[in-house]
């Protein structure tokens, strides 16, 4: 379920990106965290300590609840990165795994 919708009557361009392996259309010019809330990808991660479900909280870079994998790089702050065409976003579930 979407937690945030676009304001009525605002003209928007959309772009194509991949969230959790699924192609989605997302309004251009918003942050990755905003895209997750809009697309209803909630929880957007689980806490490494304890595994509880989490999602973006502050939207301004201070809480680190929005950590996601973006284009293969883990632990990016989703609220500090703008969406881009072709971007691939994955949720981080469980403790981070370091591949050799």
């Amino acid at each position: 379920m979407t937690l945030y919708r676009a304001l009525d009557a605002e003209p928007r361009e959309h772009l194509d990106m991949t969230i959790e392996g699924r192609r989605v259309l997302i309004p251009a010019g918003i942050s990755v965290a905003a895209a997750l809330l809009h697309a209803g990808i909630i929880p957007s991660r689980t806490a490494p300590a304890g595994g509880a479900p989490r999602a973006p909280y502050c939207m301004m870079g201070v809480c680190f609840e929005c950590l996601v994998e973006i284009d293969g790089v883990p632990n990016r702050q989703g609220c500090m990165v703008s969406v881009a065409a072709g971007m691939r976003v994955r949720r981080q579930l469980g403790a981070p795994v370091c591949e050799p």
Partner: peptide, 24 residues
């Protein structure tokens, strides 16, 4: 810490920067 719990400021940032408003 539950998903869907945010700061009021976070919602305001979404309004300013994304033009997004709460849906539920």
């Amino acid at each position: 810490t539950l998903p869907g719990v945010m700061t009021a400021g976070g919602a305001q940032i979404l309004l300013k920067s994304a033009g997004h408003v709460p849906a539920g």
